[in-house]
Nucleic acid binder design. Structure first.
Lengths: 343, 343
DNA sequence: TGTGCTGTTGTTAACGCTAACAATCGACCA
DNA sequence: TGGTCGATTGTTAGCGTTAACAACAGCACA
């Protein structure tokens, strides 16, 4: 009924008057303190619902020093992994009674990272979760002296700071070994961007698996996560095949988008998958199953990552220094991989 | 140097003492008020940087009643469109000096929507932007009487509430007309989930284009945005082709993921695209170009959507009732569409 | 019947900030 | 020379909440 011009929001004292008690008693009821007589509690409860009172978060934050909120610093939110992690994180945070502020990094520079964290600090969030896995932003994180707990997710192990991460090397080894076991002499690799820690981890795992098997380690092709880079890599590999290079029969691509581009390029070049070349991706995006052919890949449980991130934050806030275990990836075999062709 | 146990954050008064002025003068400097003598201003500035002071957002919010933050209610964040919109929205909000809280809906029920908005209200955000385009959540939005400005994005036109939206019908018409102009007798349609307003808008546009051209309107196939549904639809259409149904030569699929599934099914069934069947998608996800074949689709500028959402919010906060124009989609022709085969 | 406890309620003082008003100081003009 | 005005600065109050303490009842026990 009232025009939009605010009728001044209800305060504790309004409820107190309505219920005939002091504002402190109302506060006690709101916060579930023990020593309140059942009759009083009920009377206050009724007043609260009748008036539709809701506590003022700012006033609370001012006096308690806690906003019951986290800040999430994130980049590349339009990619599957980060989006999925955000999903898990928000849900877990909400379940724990925290709300989530989001800052999306324009670029992965130290300055951007610092500015985002700063803004959260000014908002007095209770903790900041950072999910940038790129270059200087990661370095920046390592050195930060923030006046709030700062938790890193998905940046690989870090001794100096609490961290949650997926064991990228393990996933890459899984993929590479799978191909070697199918009889391929070696496995080529299309990497992610060089400044990504995840991309580097996958390179390490791939190389390790090859070396352990005594297989030659070819020069990796450099990509950037996007399908276009995979396409370029596919053309490059096809050229090598045409030039008679015999060992190009298996490729481990650092993510599914690039694998899609690669499949497309190979098809254009008249190479069959897995007949001529076997391909493995990474991430297990939901569309994998409908690539041509359906893509063998490594699944990362991003939602779990988000969940563990929140766990770590909460443990930290409670003062328990929880040692977090890495999340383990899993190989999903589909139809893009097959036995090496006999030469 | 100090142990983590807080040394009590700096307050206005600390700066005041350090600079030898009153706390109010410091406040004036911080907020850029005019009447401060240049010498004083500089002295205060120096004190601020020396001490590393940062204003307390909670105290500010308490007294001004504004947190300089928006709440974003969103669902399906792991899909391309919502993620991209979030990106545009956050950037625009940040540029305007607002921070962004995010609530992700567990499901598209009215209860979930109501709870999310409630939580933002309790946090006293300055405005809530809602980006759910599904069933009851939309209905809920329509009826909400929130004590803060509530802006809806992407839910189609709404007379009762400020809205930003993409003209879905226009996009669907573009796609359908493109196929008709290539000589196809009619165009089949794979829809999104029936409770999605966007999906409904696309059905409307598709139907309208067919009717305007005097083409028969076949029964649409019902999907859910996911590639698996597109795959199922593809098999169903292939079955019709085998059964001799002649008019199955063109399909407009309500999004790119489903189009991918459909392409995969058609390939499995030995049908060529665009030789036997032409396919158009919707969204223009970055991978489109690398589908087999590259997908003709309708591009939506999601980032622009986010930007306009913020514009609308800001206009509303300033009290200017801005009439927002719809964002117009655009047809991107690639290789999945071609002329109808002669019968 | 007085003493001390326990459970319940009220009173007061912060938290850090901005808004409103008051005070001071020159300068300028009549 | 006194008064007025504008620019600058300081003082005070209050935003809505929680924490700390004070007050008061009722009860058990000596």
């Amino acid at each position: 009924m009232l025009p939009d011009g605010a009728p001044r929001a209800l305060a504790l004292s309004d409820v107190a008057v309505h219920a005939g008690v002091s504002h402190q008693t109302v506060s006690r009821v709101v916060n579930g303190h023990p020593n309140v007589a059942p009759a009083t509690r009920e009377r206050v409860q009724r007043a609260i619902t009748e008036l539709g009172y809701r506590p003022n978060a700012a006033a609370r934050a001012l006096v308690t020093g806690s906003t019951r909120s986290f800040g999430l610093v994130i980049s590349h939110i339009n990619q599957y992994g980060p989006a999925q992690t955000l999903l898990g994180l928000e849900k877990a945070a909400r379940a724990a009674g925290y709300s989530l502020g989001v800052a999306i990094l324009d670029d992965d520079s130290e300055a951007a990272m610092r500015e985002a964290v700063d803004r959260f600090v000014a908002q007095s969030v209770d903790a900041v979760v950072a999910l940038s896995t790129y270059g200087q932003a990661v370095e920046a994180l390592r050195r930060f002296e923030a006046p709030v707990p700062l938790i890193a997710v998905q940046v690989g192990r870090d001794e100096s700071r609490p961290t949650v991460w997926v064991a990228q090397e393990v996933g890459a080894e899984l993929a590479t070994r799978h191909l070697l076991e199918l009889g391929h002499r070696t496995v080529h690799h299309v990497t992610g961007p060089p400044d990504s820690l995840e991309a580097r981890g996958r390179v390490v795992g791939w190389r390790r698996a090859l070396e352990q098997a005594g297989a030659p380690v070819p020069e990796p092709l450099c990509g950037d996560w996007w399908a276009s880079a995979g396409h370029a890599a596919g053309r490059a590999l096809a050229a090598r095949v045409r030039a008679g290079q015999e060992d190009v029969t298996a490729v481990f691509v650092a993510n599914d988008q690039m694998a899609l581009g690669l499949l497309s390029a190979l098809a254009d070049e008249g190479l069959s998958v897995p007949g001529d070349i076997s391909v493995v991706g990474f991430d297990d995006v939901p569309e994998c199953e409908y690539f041509s052919p359906p893509l063998t890949t490594v699944r990362q449980d991003f939602a779990e990552l988000g969940r563990r991130g929140v766990e770590l934050v909460l443990a930290r806030l409670r003062g328990e220094p929880l040692e977090s275990q890495p999340v383990l990836p899993q190989l999903i075999v589909r139809r893009s991989t097959g036995p090496a062709r006999r030469v």
